[in-house]
Structures are given as structure tokens and as C-alpha cells.
């Protein structure tokens, strides 16, 4: 479906980055959000939050990006960040076959938990290390196609493909939202608002929570 020209509304999209440790998740986000690169930045613990405003054909879009930690010990925290996400960036390192296998685990989990509501993009990062490549482009692309995900290759270091990848993902999330809006179901609204209330790890009923905060 074609993207409508902007109607003055701002869309809030939640995006989560997932993938093995040290594949370049933080580098991709920092390149995209701040256009910075540092080969030696601090390892992410749990997750960090960044945001970016973009404009696609007149649609104002606010990306809320969760950059998660790669270590497997933190895997259990995944749902906290991908729950109610509109999009997921699944990053592997083209020089590391194991990191590509880890992507498949995430895809399975996301499809199982969120179905087709979430837009996926699989990203092979570190193309600047092409000579060390251990994951073939064909294999990755055919896998992505099979699971209904976009596929991109990037180098956060050389600033290649990063902008295009986020742009394509955003466009896809926008299409999906507008599609859903015509069905009079605002998934985006649900996702960014009421969805998060469920995050509260607590036995309070929604009505009491609402009461508590609503009148203050």
C-alpha cells in the first residue's frame, strides 16, 4: 500500500536491537542517532535507550530505540524490550557464524511472541572486515526472505548502509501502521501506550493503576 502524505500526526515507533555480544549493536545505533563511531566504546549492560526523529514523506516519526546487551545471561530480559516493539533490528557480525545462528533464535522467539506484528530487519554488520567474512550474503538473504525479514549489510565504522537500513525499517513500520489504521485498529497506539502499562510487574489491576496516577 502506498504511504499517505503526512497528515500532521506523529507516529511513535519502538525499535529494539538484538544480537550476540560485540557484533556492533551499539555502534549501529550511535552511528545512526549521533553519527559517531568509536571502535572501543563501553559494553552495554542490560539496555540503553536512544531516540531519533525522522520524517518520511511528510509523516513525522519518533523512533524510541532500545539497544540491548548481547550477553546470553541477559537473554531473559529480552521480552522487557521487544514486547510492544514495532520493529526489531537483528544484528550479526559477518565474520562470526555463531552470531548469525543467534539471530535465528531471536527470530523464532519474536515470531512466536509477537507474530507478524513486528517488522524485522536482519543486519550483517562489519562489512569493513569483508576479507574475514564467515557468513555468506546469499545464505543470510535467503534466510531473511524465508522468515519475512528485510536484510541489510552495514558497516557502522565506515558509515555504510546504516541510514538506509533504519530508513527501510521505519518505512515498513509506517506502512504496517497505516495499513492497520485503515482497519481502524491502531496498533501503534496500543503498542506505545497501553502495552507498556502491562510491563508493570505487579498484581495491581489496571483500573487501580489508572486511578492512582490519573488523579495526581
Amino acid at each position: 500500500m502506498a504511504i499517505n502524505s503526512g497528515n500532521g500526526k506523529t507516529h511513535n515507533f519502538k525499535v529494539v536491537l538484538l544480537g550476540e555480544g560485540c557484533v556492533g549493536k551499539t555502534s549501529l545505533v550511535l552511528r545512526y542517532v549521533e553519527d559517531k563511531f568509536n571502535s572501543n566504546h563501553i559494553s552495554t549492560v542490560q539496555a540503553s535507550f536512544l531516540s531519533k526523529k525522522v520524517n518520511i514523506e511528510g509523516n513525522r516519526i519518533n523512533l524510541a530505540i532500545w539497544d540491548t546487551a548481547g550477553q546470553e545471561q541477559f537473554h531473559a530480559l529480552g521480552p522487557l524490550y521487544y514486547r510492544s516493539s514495532n520493529g526489531a533490528v537483528l544484528v550479526y557480525d559477518i565474520t562470526d557464524e555463531k552470531s548469525f545462528q543467534r539471530i535465528k533464535i531471536w527470530v523464532k522467539e519474536l515470531r512466536k511472541m509477537l507474530g507478524v506484528d513486528i517488522c524485522l530487519v536482519i543486519v550483517g554488520n562489519k562489512t569493513d572486515l569483508e576479507s574475514d567474512r564467515h557468513v555468506s550474503l546469499e545464505e543470510a538473504e535467503s534466510y531473511a526472505e524465508k522468515v519475512g525479514a528485510l536484510h541489510f549489510q552495514t558497516s557502522a565504522k565506515l558509515n555504510e548502509g546504516v541510514e538506509a537500513m533504519f530508513y527501510a525499517l521505519t518505512q515498513k513500520m509506517l506502512e504496517k501502521t497505516l495499513e492497520n489504521e485503515t482497519h481502524n485498529v491502531s496498533l501503534a497506539g496500543q503498542n506505545s501506550q497501553s502495552g507498556n502499562i502491562l510491563v508493570v510487574d505487579d498484581e495491581q489491576t489496571p483500573s487501580t493503576t489508572k486511578h492512582c496516577c490519573g488523579s495526581s
Partner: peptide, 13 residues
């Protein structure tokens, strides 16, 4: 607390 809840901030985050 209400302020954080109102804006969907999860303490875990």
C-alpha cells in the same frame, strides 16, 4: 512513583 508510572517507565528498565 506516579509520575514514572504515568509515563510508562518500568523500574527494571
Amino acid at each position: 512513583h506516579c509520575h514514572l508510572m504515568q509515563h510508562n517507565i518500568d523500574y527494571l528498565q
